[in-house]
């Protein structure tokens, strides 16, 4: 069984009256891509900052690689790579110099450092931009540079705090592929985001946070299994008499049926062949059936069901 790389126990962080972290407990195992998912202000970044000993906390304990984490735990820090939410590079240095500088904070051997820098440049695909200053890079390339600066020293634990904010889809995919590759190469990854699609795509285990608390934890399948909804059926219909709608609503495993703007929406909870049974009812009444789709539950449904609100902020 894989060992715990990170152990957070009963972590409490308060800002005056506001409790930013409320008895948070997490265990992250070696080789995992662990997702911290939650809306803005849910405590993800605070968790990361406490984990890195940048932020003091009121209660609890943090252990990394089996040892107590502290600001002077340099033997632990040398094996951690950090990619913060805000791009942290020197405007006056080139791409190569930036990576070399940050790598130099971890590695003193010049030969080894040079090799690591080269590999990091190739890894993020910035070979053609090595002499560029950051201000000449696009948002996506800048994010890639930010990542290269954090992983050049080949850390065992990589912490990425919302690394894809304000990134175009192409660069986002490149970043996500890169994270998966880092994980395949043996790194344990902690990934925070409020983009549930990203977390679903790359994370092997996920903790959902809200108001400083962990409200759910598990694989994505385990999390989805927590919802009542297992499938939502959508059928486009020109018309749907009320008696037919009532008949569909009365089918077993269908707990909700409504007809709005020419679309029948039937929410199912468990059961098998729900779509066939709905279509059979519609055909029996000789109704003209248009487009048919079924939608699996998302992490947003999990969040919605637990907290009663949507995971993603309106502005997102």
């Amino acid at each position: 069984m894989a060992e715990n790389v990170v152990e957070i126990e009963g972590l409490v962080k308060r800002y005056g009256e506001l409790t930013a972290l409320d008895h948070l407990t997490l265990e992250i195992k070696e080789g995992e891509v662990f997702g911290l998912l939650g809306p803005n202000g849910s405590g993800k970044t605070t968790t990361i900052n406490c984990l890195l000993s940048l932020l003091s906390y009121d209660k609890g304990s943090i252990r990394i690689f089996g040892r107590e984490m502290s600001p002077t735990a340099y033997d632990i820090k040398k094996d951690i790579g950090v990619i913060m939410q805000n791009v942290a590079v020197f405007e006056e240095l080139t791409v190569q110099e930036n990576i070399d500088y940050f790598c130099g904070l971890y590695i003193t051997d010049k030969q080894k450092k040079r090799q690591c820098v080269e590999e990091a440049i190739k890894f993020v695909g910035l070979e053609d931009f090595r002499k560029f200053r950051p201000k000449k890079l696009s948002g996506g390339l800048l994010r890639r540079l930010n990542i290269a600066c954090g992983i050049a020293h080949k850390p065992k634990l990589i912490i990425l705090d919302e690394p894809t904010v304000a990134v175009d889809p192409q660069s986002r995919n490149k970043i996500l592929e890169g994270i998966e590759e880092l994980n395949r190469n043996g790194a344990t990854v902690i990934y925070t985001s409020h983009y549930m699609e990203e977390v679903e795509q790359i994370c092997t285990r996920i903790a959902i946070m809200d108001r400083g608390r962990k409200i759910a934890e598990g694989t994505k399948e385990e999390l989805k299994a927590m919802t009542k909804n297992t499938e939502t059926i959508n059928v486009a219909l020109r018309e749907l008499p009320d008696e037919v709608l009532n008949e569909i609503g009365a089918l077993s495993h269908i707990y909700s049926a409504e007809y709005t703007d020419g679309i029948l929406t039937a929410a199912c909870s468990g059961g098998r062949h729900n779509l066939i049974r709905v279509l059979e009812v519609l055909q029996k009444h000789d109704l003209h059936i248009g487009q048919v789709t079924t939608v699996q539950p998302t992490l947003n449904d999990v969040f919605l069901e637990i907290t009663g609100k949507a995971l993603r902020d309106k502005e997102d």
């Binding site: 900052n49 890195l52 940048l54 600001p71 002077t72 340099y74 033997d75 820090k77 040398k78 951690i80 950090v82 913060m84 805000n86 791009v87 942290a88 590079v89 020197f90 940050f102 904070l105 971890y106 600066c149 954090g150």
Partner: peptide
């Protein structure tokens, strides 16, 4: 200083003593 800039925060995470 980690509370002053993202660069400070990044350096604060490194094993280079402050």
């Amino acid at each position: 200083q980690a509370d002053q800039s993202p660069l400070g925060a990044r350096k604060g995470c490194s094993p280079t003593p402050k």
